[in-house]
Design a protein around this nucleic acid. Structure first.
Lengths: 166, 166
DNA sequence: GTTATTGCAAATGATTTGCACAAGG
DNA sequence: CCTTGTGCAAATCATTTGCAATAAC
């Protein structure tokens, strides 16, 4: 966890008059241990075996809090569950490409989009707050070679592919 | 309903060996009567009083079918329900700006985004299928004048504002 | 006659919430 | 102490699904 995250979180806790609990702290540690995005369920799995495990209710409440604090970004990958992105402070521009073949998600940034967003938003009479471009695409190698490494991997892991709801 | 839509639908029905039923037809009529986007619930309301009313199950099944046929576009406005856009054939590039103050949704097109999408997707090694830019912004007039006509309207209509889930 | 379709009611599944109890400060 | 936080179980709520009855073709 970067000092920035820590500071921002502490400030938020103080500002809102919240308290420090081991459950919340364990969740925060698990969340910011990596910069990978995750779902509520994946986070639940990460806490497997950890001493300070919380209930699902607390997990969801904490996710809401961190989102409110601006430390997490909710994103929708079209699979019926919310995905959380802890990578927001470092990368305020959040765009995702989802492979419709295997469900792989590529996160990327693009300056052009940022500029374009700003122009468009102002032209429409609003002030920009945030934006995200979501691209659905298909795998080039699947098309040319007839197979896709990601696809195989995804099947093995039993991942839910895009298009499947719930 | 434009002839294009009709043709495409008929072709789809024939291709998949589906049948023509009054329920489905009534739904299709209601959906393509306007080019406004809608939720399952709003569509349900549109059928109020119509003779050929269907069950919710059929409504959802039909929405799925039309989406599969490429006649509807599923979009996520972040309010916990799927919004459907019937405006896809005419406007393949689908972008939305959501006002975080009042929840108003502005649909817009932008050639720059289309170009950018194409470049980015290929650069990442994929083939573009579809994309959508989702902008969250706040109302300029709310900020400068302290009020926003949309906000008032939204409250009156009891609309669910962004950020509220379910 | 087949086979797709419908309606109903029950199931799903992620997320939320009421409540009584536990525990920060 | 006085709140805020937690866990549990029950509640939500949009959407899906099993199934028996209907209805296209």
């Amino acid at each position: 966890m970067t000092p920035e995250v820590r500071d921002r979180l502490d400030a938020f806790i103080k500002h809102k008059g919240l308290r420090n609990t081991p459950q919340r702290e364990a969740l925060v540690q698990a969340i910011f241990a990596s910069d990978e995005h995750f779902t509520a369920d994946e986070l639940w799995d990460r806490l497997r075996g950890k001493e300070a495990r919380s209930s699902r209710a607390t997990l969801y409440r904490t996710l809401g809090l961190l989102t409110e604090a601006g430390l997490l970004q909710e994103i929708d990958l079209g699979d019926g569950q919310t995905t959380y992105d802890p990578n927001f402070l470092d990368h305020p521009s959040h765009n995702h490409l989802v492979c419709i073949d295997c469900g792989k998600v590529v996160e990327f940034q693009d300056h052009g989009i940022d500029v374009l967003n700003d122009c468009i938003t102002r032209r429409l009479g609003f002030r920009p707050v945030k934006h995200s471009l979501r691209i659905e695409a298909c795998c080039e190698s699947l098309r040319s070679k007839g197979h896709c490494r990601n696809l195989i991997q995804a099947r093995l892991e039993g991942k839910r592919l895009p298009g499947k709801k719930r």
